[in-house]
C-alpha cells in the first residue's frame, strides 16, 4: 500500500462513555493527508468527544483510532503532540495567567529548533498582527476574539501534521470568524491536514473537502462539503430550515 493512499487518520467503531452517558456509539470515518474534514451535529452529538478521543484526552471504551498506520490506544496527549497531532481545544483554551508570548512558546513546547520557532513566531504575528501588539500582556486580558486568535496561533506553533480545531468561531464576531476561516483555508493549502468541529454548519461545510454528520454519537451522513450543503435533511436539521 502506498503512503499516499492510506488515510492519515482512521477512526473505526469508536465508543466513548462518560459514566452512564453513552457519548459516542460506533462512530467511523477517516481523513486523508491534506484534507479539511468537518464534523457537524447538534450540541451533545459527540463532536468534541471525538476530538478528545483522537487527541488522547479521553479513553474510548471500544473502537480503534489509527494515525499514520499506528494504533493510538493508550497514548497520552503529550505523546501525540510529539507525533504531530495537535488539538486546539474548544473555547478559550489559552492560559490567562501567562503572557501571549509565553502561550505561543508553549505551543512549541516539544520543539528544540530555536531558529525555526522564531520564524514560526513571526509567521504567527504576521497572521494575527494584534498578537504582536499584545505579546507582553497576560492572555487573560485579551478579548474573546483575540484569545481565539491566540489559541489558533499557538496550535500552529507546534507545526502539526494533523490539526484538530474545536469551534474556532466560538463567540466571535462575524468578520473575525470570516478572517479565521480564511486563515484555516490558507494553512490547509500550505499542506496541513485539519479536522474541524464547528457549530456553524454553513461555515464548516463551506470550507470542508469532506464532512460527517454526527447524531447521538454516530455518523449518520457523510459526503463532500458541497454535497452536504445541498442535502435537504441537512438543511432542515442543521441549517435551521
Amino acid at each position: 500500500m502506498s503512503e499516499a493512499s492510506a488515510p492519515l487518520l482512521k477512526i473505526e467503531n469508536l465508543d466513548v462513555h462518560y459514566g452512564a452517558i453513552h457519548a459516542l456509539r460506533g462512530a467511523s470515518f477517516s481523513i486523508a493527508q491534506g484534507e479539511i474534514v468537518s464534523l457537524i451535529g447538534a450540541n451533545g452529538a459527540g463532536k468534541t468527544t471525538t476530538l478528545r478521543a483522537v487527541s488522547g484526552m479521553l479513553k474510548p471504551s471500544a473502537g480503534k483510532i489509527t494515525y499514520r498506520g499506528e494504533d493510538l490506544a493508550g497514548k497520552k496527549p503529550h505523546q501525540l503532540v510529539a507525533k504531530g497531532l495537535c488539538h486546539a481545544p474548544e473555547g478559550r483554551g489559552v492560559f490567562p495567567n501567562l503572557t501571549v508570548l509565553e502561550n505561543l512558546h508553549l505551543g512549541a513546547f516539544l520543539r528544540r529548533d530555536t531558529a525555526a520557532i522564531h520564524e514560526d513566531l513571526e509567521k504567527g504575528f504576521g497572521l494575527f498582527p494584534r498578537l504582536r501588539e499584545r505579546a507582553k500582556q497576560l492572555a487573560g486580558t485579551l478579548s474573546g476574539g483575540e484569545q481565539q486568535m491566540l489559541a489558533i496561533a499557538r496550535a500552529l506553533m507546534a507545526r502539526p501534521t494533523l490539526l484538530l480545531l474545536d469551534e474556532p468561531s466560538l463567540g466571535l464576531a462575524p468578520q473575525i470568524t470570516e478572517a479565521i476561516f480564511q486563515i484555516i483555508e490558507d494553512i490547509n493549502r500550505a499542506g496541513m491536514t485539519i479536522l474541524l468541529v464547528e457549530q456553524n454548519a454553513h461555515l464548516a461545510l463551506g470550507i470542508a473537502h469532506h464532512a460527517h454528520v454526527l447524531e447521538t454519537g454516530s455518523v449518520v451522513q457523510s459526503g463532500t462539503g458541497r454535497e452536504l450543503l445541498k442535502s435537504p435533511e441537512i438543511r432542515r436539521a442543521y441549517l435551521g430550515e
Binding site: M57, P77, H78, C86, F95, N97, L106, A158
Partner: peptide
Amino acid sequence: TAMRAVSWNAQVASLMG
C-alpha cells in the same frame, strides 16, 4: 512555564505536549 500552564489547566497543557 509548563508548571504555570499545568496549574491553570492540566488538560490543555497536555495538548501542548
